[in-house]
Design a protein around this nucleic acid. Structure first.
Length: 444
DNA sequence: ATGCTGATTGTTAGG
DNA sequence: CCTAACAATCAGCAT
């Protein structure tokens, strides 16, 4: 592994139009572009022993596993400057008044990278966002593209150093994975903070390095995660916490639906179902009793808190939770919403009895739970925790990465929506197609 | 402490 | 066409 910063060669800058425009923007913003040269040397940043022979079973894309990944080598700005926090001025838009000058960038120090990455992601990846917007946006896009590349190369260097030592010592054996079949209706586990971060940043990485494999991206994201500021990690963790609460509720709903299914479907072999249901309800598991009703029983109507929040909380975009909820809506609210306690499973109660039996208890649970939930959901948005610039920009460009997601009405938390509504943003997603007749997502 | 599972995206092959 | 596997990595949970 021999990754190094090559002496800059200004003449080669022009080889990358996007970089050129970025550099122009650097100049326009008094950023020292002189240290941001590119060269034509292809950088092979594979780590020793790694085989990028391709993905999937066929590895057809591998070409023998001898790819060189052309991360445009950019000599990074020269000295570490933790003040990248001031990278963007939320007031004035996108003036960059505190970027480092003339110093090698410490690969470990780019605490603000994710924000820039997300910007790069939004700006560079989805060029449609730029079309029809003003030059300001384009310039910003250009800047972030180049800015991201700078950091990306730094992270590449970092990765190479990091992994070369560990892999030399321990070649990891590849255990045979076997994915067990999972009930498609079962809500997916909430994505971890890291997964969220991965989702945010991978697009930008891929945008800058289309040839980068998943492994490459993973390493880069991992190094970035390591370098992420604690505050920003906390921001992701807060999201995860919220998603976890949602997951628990969805899980409770799902389990309730399993039980109710048993009741409602006597033809079905009961033994398997009920044993499954009871097995899936360990007593230790905190179960939230949540009435599923079209308008939230918490008095939080669809406008009471951002729809995007709801949808982003709806778990990973595998549709499992959505399906679960949809299915649950077919059931009586009390049944679908509230899992019977294990003690109530035997002897089984009639659904109506069950509902009555639980209603009083649930009322108390709901009230207490709603307090905590509201607290978490209305916690300060990320925009107040270091992502305000992103929010600002999303406001200026339209808010969503998704094509066609105009979101005119749910601007309460655009950064959330922009970050996590970037998949499955079909006509029924984001706010665009979420009409009254669409499936509402009951977050109560 | 350690190990397992599942999550991230995109590609590919097989059913 | 749909699904599973695969890649590197991390978080979370169970043991």
């Amino acid at each position: 592994m021999d990754v190094r910063f090559y002496p800059a060669h200004p003449s080669s800058v022009g080889s990358d139009p996007s970089c050129l425009s970025s550099l122009e923007y650097y100049h326009a913003n008094k950023f020292d572009a002189d240290n941001m040269y590119m060269n034509d040397n292809n950088q092979d940043f594979r780590t020793p022993g790694q085989n990028y022979s391709g993905q999937g079973r066929g590895s057809a894309s591998g070409g023998g596993g001898d790819e060189d990944y052309e991360i445009p080598p950019i000599t990074p700005p020269n000295h570490a400057d933790p003040s990248l926090l001031h990278l963007m001025d939320a007031e004035s838009g996108y003036t960059f008044h505190s970027l480092p000058h003339n110093g090698l960038l410490n690969p470990y120090s780019y605490s603000e990278l994710p924000a820039a990455l997300m910007m790069s992601n939004m700006l560079g990846q989805d060029s449609h966002l730029l079309s029809g917007h003003n030059m300001h946006s384009k310039k910003a896009a250009g800047f972030f593209s180049a800015f991201f590349r700078t950091f990306l190369f730094s992270s590449t260097l970092y990765i190479g150093e990091k992994r070369s030592s560990s892999e030399m010592t321990k070649p990891k054996p590849k255990p045979q994975k076997k994915k067990k079949k999972k009930d498609p209706n079962e809500p997916s586990k909430p994505v971890s903070a890291y997964a969220l971060f991965f989702r945010d940043t991978q697009a930008a990485i891929k945008g800058s390095n289309p040839n980068a494999t998943f492994g490459d991206v993973s390493k880069i994201v991992a190094s970035m995660w390591d370098s992420l500021g604690e505050e920003q990690k906390q921001a992701y963790k807060r999201k995860t916490e919220a998603a976890k609460k949602e997951y628990l509720k969805a899980l409770a709903t799902y389990r309730a639906s399993l039980v109710s299914k048993t009741y409602n479907d006597p033809v079905e072999p009961k033994s398997a179902q009920s044993s499954q249901a009871s097995h899936m309800m360990p007593p230790k598991q905190p179960l939230y009793s949540v009435p599923l009703q079209p308008s939230s029983s918490y008095g939080l109507g669809p406008g009471s808190f951002p729809l995007s929040d709801l949808q982003s909380f709806a778990g990973p975009p595998r549709h499992t939770l959505a399906r679960t909820l949809s299915q649950s809506q077919m059931l009586p609210p009390s049944m679908s919403a509230s899992p019977p306690s294990p003690f109530q499973i035997s002897p089984p109660l009639h659904p109506s009895q069950l509902a009555l039996h639980q209603s009083s208890l649930r009322m108390q649970q709901v009230q207490s739970h709603s307090m905590g939930l509201q607290g978490s959901l209305h916690s300060p948005p990320l925009s107040q925790q270091g992502f305000s610039h992103i929010q600002d920009y999303q406001n200026s460009v339209g808010g969503s990465q998704s094509p066609g997601a105009h979101n005119p009405g749910h601007g309460q938390n655009p950064d959330w929506d922009g970050e996590y509504c970037n998949r499955d943003c079909g006509p029924n997603h984001c706010s665009g197609g979420m009409g009254a007749g669409d499936k509402p997502l009951y977050l109560t």
